[in-house]
């Protein structure tokens, strides 16, 4: 037999233990790299759903330049941003019936909801798990400082940090992973609290 195979017996434990260590360290490195660069956003942020009414932020937030907080009223005070009530839509749409055919038909749907006193069954796009107690109010309060926006700023600049350029989206979709790693990275980078009980209770 070949003499070099004789050493195999003794080297076996070394090879096995070394292999184990190498696997673990290699796995760790690959994992970390994958976590940062190849996070599969597509798996989390699904394609934009078709809403009951083809409401478009491009018109409202983009072309008309309505402040986010005008419709999402509780965002500066509460945990949730809030979906405007149908009546709030009717502030304008009682008058504005739409000119183009496709838009007018959507507005007509809205008016029908209002006439029937029914809420609109919006499909939620940004959904966090139940065990995450995210609070919009704190983020709206803190983010201008974090982003260095100064005294005069557009609220859009704040909201877009997580929600992207909503005013350019025909159909709203999620643009950030909004997984815990995402939150924690940002909190760490900005010296925000990372105590678990800030979000989980």
């Amino acid at each position: 037999m070949r003499p070099d195979r004789k050493l195999l017996l003794l080297s076996l434990p070394v090879v096995l233990i070394g292999g184990l260590v190498a696997t673990i360290i290699g796995g760790f490195v690959i994992w970390r790299v994958a976590a940062h660069y190849f996070y599969p956003l597509e798996l989390i942020a699904k394609a934009a759903p078709t809403q009951p009414i083809r409401f478009t932020h491009v018109t409202h937030a983009g072309q008309l330049g309505i402040d986010c907080t005008f419709c999402h009223r509780t965002v500066t005070e509460e945990r949730t941003a809030g979906i405007p009530a149908v009546q709030q839509c009717m502030f304008c749409h009682a008058v504005i019936k739409g000119v183009e055919e496709d838009k007018a038909s959507e507005i007509a749907k809205l008016q029908e909801y209002a006439a029937n006193d029914e809420p609109i069954d919006w499909i939620r796009v940004h959904r966090l798990p139940d065990h995450v107690q995210f609070t919009h109010e704190v983020h709206i309060r803190r983010l201008p400082e974090v982003l260095g926006l100064g005294e005069d700023f557009q609220i859009q600049a704040v909201c877009s940090t997580c929600h992207g350029k909503i005013w350019e989206m025909e159909e709203v979709r999620q643009v950030r992973a909004l997984k815990m790693g995402d939150c924690v990275d940002c909190h760490r980078a900005n010296n925000a609290p990372t105590d678990c009980v800030i979000c989980h209770y």
């Binding site: 798990p129 065990h131 995450v132 105590d195 678990c196 009980v197 989980h200 209770y201």
Partner: peptide
Amino acid sequence: TYHNNEGLNVQVYNR
């Protein structure tokens, strides 16, 4: 479960 700096004994459900 851990102790936070407010003296609370915290239970983190998701973990």
